[in-house]
Amino acid sequence: MNRSKKQEKRSSKRAKPHVIILSGYGLNTEDETKAAFESVGATADIVHINDLIARPTLLNKANILVVGGGFAYGDHTGAGKAYGNRLKAHLGKDISKFLERDTLMLGICNGFQILTSAGFLPGALIANNVPRYSARWVDLKVKGESPWLRGINTMSVPIAHGEGKYYAPPEVLETLEKENAIALQYIDGEVSQHFGLPPNPNGSLKNIAGVTSHGGRVLGLMPHPERAVFFTQLPHWTLLREEYVRSGKKFPQEGPGLQLFRNAVQYFV
């Protein structure tokens, strides 16, 4: 049992941190995101945005708020725009209040687009340089400071998006750099090299894959860590299996994305 597993066990005696995962209007990664959080010791509820609008006090009991991936409003009029508008107009104040406490917030893919659109994260996501939906794996380097990313140096996880190119005006990029708010950058790593794919999948400025705000407590990223929680989700795991088995090792169970969820849970224990 490794250290983190021990901590999970210990923490289970205390109250588990509670996660609210937003849903509705075409968001679609709630179930696997919930499973990822639960597997590392959180409790999680999937809450429709309309239900949260009707009862914003639900946020009072939550430690973590997640807007996950999907295709809210079909990406029509621009990815994340319509849902971001709705979030900002109806829950903007409540989320700001939520963030006044020592809480965490996460936007994955469409959720990242939504959180930038609603103004909780800087910058914008625009059409990929090759303007087509792209589903593949990428390699990331952790750059900034964030509770979500503690102890992670690099990780390989999948992307799936058509509008994932990170854009911000030069002065904003400079500020991000200064404030250590560029959280994740695409790098030429294991998976890109393995498949001979360009490291930056969409033309993001400064290779930015994720940014933070609120001192790192709010993280937005285009890649999908919740799709990389099992070893058997890796794109080349059947090859890695051969390497493990032939050198007499048992191959691992866990995928590289899980640590991000574990970090969030451990922030509260």
């Binding site: 679609n28 990664t29 991936g69 087509r132 939906y133 589903a135 001979g196 989700q233 794109p235 080349h236």
Partner: peptide
């Protein structure tokens, strides 16, 4: 261009090998 990983159930991929 087809997302094959959403829902987190993917084991073997539509494009295989290096």
């Amino acid at each position: 261009q087809y997302d094959h990983e959403v829902q987190g159930m993917s084991v073997t991929k539509p494009l295989q090998g290096r």
